[in-house]
Design a protein around this nucleic acid. Structure first.
Lengths: 140, 140
DNA sequence: GTTCCTGCAAAAGCTTTGCAGAAGA
DNA sequence: TCTTCTGCAAAGCTTTTGCAGGAAC
């Protein structure tokens, strides 16, 4: 039976990415934490396990992963790139009160626009903003 | 018959915003140019008409307008906030080759997600990325 | 006369880049 | 051994902030 890291290692290899301790740990973190973290959050969350991990390594790693289609980049807000390992079609909801980002299922195939005929679509994003259930009930 | 600027002036007043030469010109520019400009583009496009216009005025003005729901902010890419005067529901397509942003009609009412029941949705965004028709045909 | 806006400069914040040494294959 | 990754520091860019003078009402 393979360990989780052997699997992740294979994933990197399949994408043509060299393996390293840092890369495996960052990928593992993203696979286990579907919380749409920013680069900064990842850095701080991993400081215990990887005390010497640097910002630039995190940024370079995340960019390699995005380029290899291993991660998806979320640009819901300016100056706050978030990353997720979930590559299936889905939408995002960001709560303006608590900042939490929620996933929700959505079928992207329902979109058909005559205006986009002849266009090559590589990436589809949908995000909503508002107030989440939990913040709404805290107000009452 | 009112001039266009008198109308824009009324719009500002209705939103509780003080009128000024700069604000009217910036709003006029956005109303006439549905090209989803960035703050920087607006600044440069207006240099002829308003030679002393400053970056900070542009940023502050745009932020006031967004807060007053007079403009919509697009965050398709990080570090590149674009603005538009069109507040009707529609989607955006950004061409990865030429950088152009296209609007397309979309009915946001078709989205129904059980996962968002009990959530208060204030803002809906949808954007696609890919290659536009014009860039595709230039390749052949 | 007040209030709020403008514009200059400086600061802030996130992301990228350059480079020397280290790690991986 | 050769390539590529890591991590430090510095640079780059967009956006925000502070403040004095000026415009709007």
């Amino acid at each position: 039976m393979k360990s989780a890291n052997e699997n992740l290692s294979d994933i990197l290899a399949n994408k043509g990415l060299k393996s390293s301790h840092q890369r495996l740990k960052i990928l593992e973190y993203l696979a286990n934490n579907p919380c749409h973290p920013t680069a900064d959050k990842i850095l701080h969350e991993m400081k215990n396990e990887l005390p010497t991990l640097s910002k630039s390594t995190v940024y370079k790693t995340l960019n390699s992963f995005v380029e290899a289609n291993l991660l998806r980049e979320l640009t819901i807000e300016d100056r706050e790139i978030r990353y997720e390992y979930n590559l299936e079609d889905h939408g995002h909801f960001k709560c303006e009160e608590c900042g939490e980002v929620y996933d929700f299922k959505i079928n992207f195939d329902i979109f058909h626009s005559k205006e986009l005929e002849g266009f090559k679509v590589n990436d589809k994003n949908i995000y909503f903003k508002g107030v989440c259930k939990s913040c709404l009930s805290n107000k009452n």
